[in-house]
Design a protein around this nucleic acid. Sequence first.
DNA 1: TATTAATGACTGACCGGTCAGTTATCAGGA
DNA 2: TCCTGATAACTGACCGGTCAGTCATTAATA
Lengths: 213, 213
Amino acid sequence: MLPPGEPKFRRRKAARPGEIVAAALAVFAERGFAAARLDEIAARAGVSKGALYLYFETKEEIFRAVVDHAIAPNMQMIRAMVAAHPGPFPALLRAVGERIGALIETVPIGGVVKMVIGEARNFPEIARVWHDELAAQALGALTDAVRAAQVRGEVRVGDPRMFALELIAPMIMGVIWRETFVPVGALPFDLSALAGQHVETMLHGMMATEAVA
Amino acid sequence: MLPPGEPKFRRRKAARPGEIVAAALAVFAERGFAAARLDEIAARAGVSKGALYLYFETKEEIFRAVVDHAIAPNMQMIRAMVAAHPGPFPALLRAVGERIGALIETVPIGGVVKMVIGEARNFPEIARVWHDELAAQALGALTDAVRAAQVRGEVRVGDPRMFALELIAPMIMGVIWRETFVPVGALPFDLSALAGQHVETMLHGMMATEAVA
DNA sequence: TATTAATGACTGACCGGTCAGTTATCAGGA
DNA sequence: TCCTGATAACTGACCGGTCAGTCATTAATA
């Protein structure tokens, strides 16, 4: 009864956590926290359900790991972009817009956004981490950039934090639209084009002079 | 053994469905579909769990009723606003902005938005209804208004559907921010002020001339 | 051979949905 | 006005399926 071919599993302690988190991201993003089945996560990660508990204590801890995992690289990217452009505001905005447009077309950020929005009440600690370490920082960085541009006289008067929200909101809404309505037949948006058009619209709308080009 | 005081329940067939839907809205908004308990909905509606099944077949049907209930008045409002302003674009935009700003400050629309986003994959029919009867229509109405203004030469060139998304996205994001992050300590936005500032920003950004005032 | 990664059948709690029984309400008769 | 059935709105204990989490056992590897 011993098939001499492939062994029925391999011992790969180092690789498992990453594979489990990746599988969990996909399942949580598709189903939400409560409707996600540990059996499905395990199956997609190529392990049994029991193996999950060698690396994580509870379902909630897996969820937390997924959220944490999704934060780090994004925060790094945002910091790098803002730091790379102390110069004139239009240049910063166009660079950020282009980068984000390309990013959201490829990275599965949408699933995580949905997850955090949908489960925020049930897991306030997760909402807090996501806010403190990503949302508030990204919004803060953009707010600072806007405020600096206002001081330089480039950007007209107005609440800089609201300007920051106005800048990023359509991109996030575009992602939410894609995740929520496109699967049921909605006309999709070209998110890169949306990012480009919105940056130009906002530049015309925010700049003190018409020296936008 | 018969206490002569208050009866332990009353027969109020006409009022029950509305009360159940209102209670369900609150619980679904707080917990999401899966984590919402029928016992809690029943308790908040002031009935027993069994009574729910006198008026609804399943939990999902209650969910559907909540979503349907939230759609009708909003759609009516949007239609009325766009119909009331065939005239110059800035006037329409300011009217819509003011109305929406006031509305989202008061109406519990946020919970429903979170619900739909969070449960779209698990209940595609609900996402479809929400899209077909609200999101697509609202976006379409705004798109038509933008396109008409472009034809009149008021609004610069650009994808009108993207302009429409750019217009409404910050308001929706403001609501999501309030529902998701403010409960864990985030700095809130003044949504009316946000609506006002965004309308002015977008007018400056979209209009062909600087004849905004 | 010793060690431990990995399995998967199992358990127990939880919750959507049911239904036999209870009680408010009211029409009609005295 | 007070009783008295008839009706159906309402209750809440219960059932059965589902699924997160456990653990005795098996198998890969050093």
